[in-house]
Design a protein around this nucleic acid. Structure first.
Lengths: 286, 286
DNA sequence: ACGTCGATTTCGAGG
DNA sequence: CCTCGAAGTCGACGT
């Protein structure tokens, strides 16, 4: 059986199911009225309210309210969960050491407890990260500037690792800092820090610093300017326009456009409809 | 009724419950085998696997696997959820604009759908944040150094807002940067940035920079040293030792220690046990 | 909206 | 372990 649910269970029955879940590596959820206490790197206290608590077999615990992407309280993976019943309350305690942290959830009322058996072997593939931007530049260093030649990535300096280290057409060392999105002052400071460190390594070599990102804020631009640092506008993924991809003619345009624009159509072109729900689109919600 | 659950529902029944949940401001969860596609600031694709999907009435959607504190995919608050059935799959689409982002979850198998009515008016109280550190310093500026006098917090400069701006015993301007935990190079750079900005405002005033944090990494210490910046070790919350609170003698030490060490005992000192489960402690799990 | 920065950030890589 | 930096970071607060 893959899912076990108890509706308005007695505390002892809820406890029993949680014990099974914790022992058998199941994902467990508890919904009900509870309070939460946390103590560790910081401390917090949360009064009574209805929340969804998620306990993962890797030792994660999440306490979710009806708002926000972030759990109101949590414990990261690697913790030890324990459930108990005391003073008429179902309690879940999650502990870890280094740092020493404790999370305590106390339910005064339990609406539902569920244990799920989870099987998931798929990995997420993601594009548009800083690493994509790095690959893009290593593939075509001229995107930074004509004549730019990458020498190393993640090159260590006294101030930390430099994203891309290289040399320009004139043979001057170039420090490149990459950001996948629009950057603020901190990125300018970071680049400056690296440039100064490399400058100490190569005195009088005229080390240059280039920030590569889609855009910069005004303040960041001023900070770069002030320090003689440069900016190159570039996004992690190139324009979808295939003309830009291969520099060729527009022969492939239609094919590429078809793939992109086809996301909506794709909804209809699976195998033959297994279930006939017609236009089963549901109304939406804010 | 506060919770509605469907076990292994037909897609159309699952759809119906989701529509109700979306329409009535309920929190909904769906567990089953699904794939997930995301496109927006970045793009991602996730193959088939069992996941717990949480849809909040504020427009948040979370896709959780059995591992990690972070959802493998998500959409932040403010999105619009839509459910539908096509090609024999229950689909949940979450969209938003600015930035334009779409999340699509397609279930090939649904183990359970639940709609929860949530009532939660409690707010979290948290201690140990950077703001606590700031308050601590404003309460007792001597913690930074004897003679330090705060003038402003969040004081604007050309490089950004300074945590605490003040003056030292000699009347020199002091820029204080606060961190609630051990800091690395970025904090040193940040402080330096502010100090230079203030230095431009008060030429030849000998602006000082002080980083206040529990500790610094070696590299950060070197960067501070290099730039003539200072470090003061201080934690967001003072020692639990009450001697430090009021500067009194040690009379209260034992009481305070009792409170600290008493977290375990506290489990027993509520009101009279309402339910008798004896030592109902359950076994734990990694 | 955009800018700026904190966070119980979490996460992953590397030493 | 610690250090360091990225993240579809999120979230809050300000302009």
């Amino acid at each position: 059986m893959s899912v076990t649910t108890l509706h308005r269970p007695a505390h002892r029955d809820a406890l029993s199911l949680l014990e099974t879940a914790f022992g058998d590596g199941l994902l467990a959820t508890v919904f009900g009225r509870c309070t939460v206490e946390y103590d560790g790197r910081a401390s917090s206290s949360l009064g009574p309210g209805d929340r969804l608590v998620v306990c993962k077999p890797d030792g994660t615990i999440l306490v979710h309210t009806d708002e926000s992407r972030e759990p109101v309280n949590w414990q990261p993976p690697g913790c030890t969960h324990r459930a108990s019943v005391r003073d008429g309350r179902l309690r879940i305690r999650s502990e870890r050491s280094s740092p020493d942290e404790t999370l305590d959830v106390a339910f005064e009322r339990i609406e539902q407890v569920t244990a799920y058996e989870v099987e998931d072997r798929s990995d997420l593939t993601l594009t548009g990260s800083e690493e994509d931007l790095r690959r893009r530049i290593l593939d075509d260093p001229g995107l930074v500037e004509p004549g730019f030649e990458p020498i190393a990535t993640e090159r260590e300096t006294a101030a930390g690792p430099v994203d891309v280290f290289g040399s320009d057409e004139a043979g001057r060392p170039v420090v490149v800092e990459l950001k996948r999105r629009r950057v603020g002052p901190s990125a300018a400071s970071q680049l400056r820090r690296y440039v100064e460190a490399v400058d100490e390594e190569f005195p009088d070599a005229g080390v240059r610093g280039v920030l590569v990102a889609p855009s910069v804020t005004e303040r960041a631009a001023a900070l770069l300017e002030e320090r003689g640092l440069e900016f190159v506008a570039l996004e992690p993924v190139g324009e979808r326009d295939p003309e830009a991809v291969d520099g060729g003619d527009g022969a492939a345009v239609d094919g590429e456009d078809a793939e992109r624009g086809g996301s909506e159509d794709a909804e209809r072109d699976g195998e033959a409809d297994a279930e006939r729900d017609g236009e089963a689109d549901a109304e939406s919600e804010a």
